[in-house]
Nucleic acid binder design. Structure first.
Lengths: 128, 128
DNA sequence: CTTGAACCTCAAGTGGCTTGAGGGCGTAGC
DNA sequence: GCTACGCCCTCAAGCCACTTGAGGTTCAAG
């Protein structure tokens, strides 16, 4: 199958496929007259990559997952990747919730104390 | 004051200050023998920039906020920026919470159904 | 006068692509 | 034969917000 067909089949853009190849995430396929020709294994791999990226694994993590799949390692490995990832997602959520609280407090502070004054004096802009 | 002093006073790295100048976020200061010399206004501006960046405003948003401060616009402007920002923080939190739920479900799915099988068959890696 | 810290500029690297320039091949219609 | 279209190719640059490094200059202290 040509690259455009693979791209549609995996819902990934053509340049993205070439990019994945250039960074060594996907194996370079055979060529016919200069054009890349893919088999069904490439589609499987690309679907897996897309799945990992949708779950927000980094490219490096995706590479590691791909490697453990190709080596048919036990799925406890996969679970370890996922758990670590879950930890970092939760960490980021916590950071964002703290940020949300900070900004929300500043907005309501502005409403109750400084609304109408000039920007340089607004409580939102007072660094601590 | 020299750039190193300014950097310490505002808790910002020296290259970052030069970077802010290069993108037009901070005004280029006077020079003495080729070296940048800053006044107290530069410190105020840089403190404000740092504050905005800590609140995770983008550089462009920070630039707009800085402009509204320098024009002494009413602080309702500032509040509008902050509210818009709060909206995008909340949106990102919602996205991450959905992602967290997805990954957590995959991990517990792996624990109950497939733990021990080979990675290619692990439920975590089954794209939908 | 020498040393060492602090300063300077410019370029490249980070992540994960996207976009664009400039060109080749194959087919379909006129 | 000629043109237009659609697909493919490579290479380079752009996005964000810096950080890091190379290589060179200026300043302050001893």
């Amino acid at each position: 199958m040509r690259i455009g067909v693979l791209a549609k089949a995996a819902s990934v853009s053509v340049p993205t496929i070439r990019y994945y190849e250039s960074i060594g995430l996907l194996a370079p396929p055979a060529r016919q007259g200069g054009e890349r020709i893919y088999g069904s294994e490439a589609l499987k791999a690309l679907n897996l990559v897309r799945h990992c990226r949708e779950l927000d694994f980094s490219i490096d993590e995706t590479r590691d997952i791909l490697a453990s799949v190709q080596r048919r390692l036990p799925c406890s490995d996969t679970k370890t990747f996922a758990e670590k990832h879950l930890g970092s997602i939760r960490k980021k959520i916590a950071e964002l919730r703290a940020l949300e609280a900070t900004v929300a407090a500043l907005v309501s502070g502005c409403e109750t104390t400084c609304c109408g004054s000039a920007a340089p004096d607004c409580v939102i802009l007072q660094a601590r």
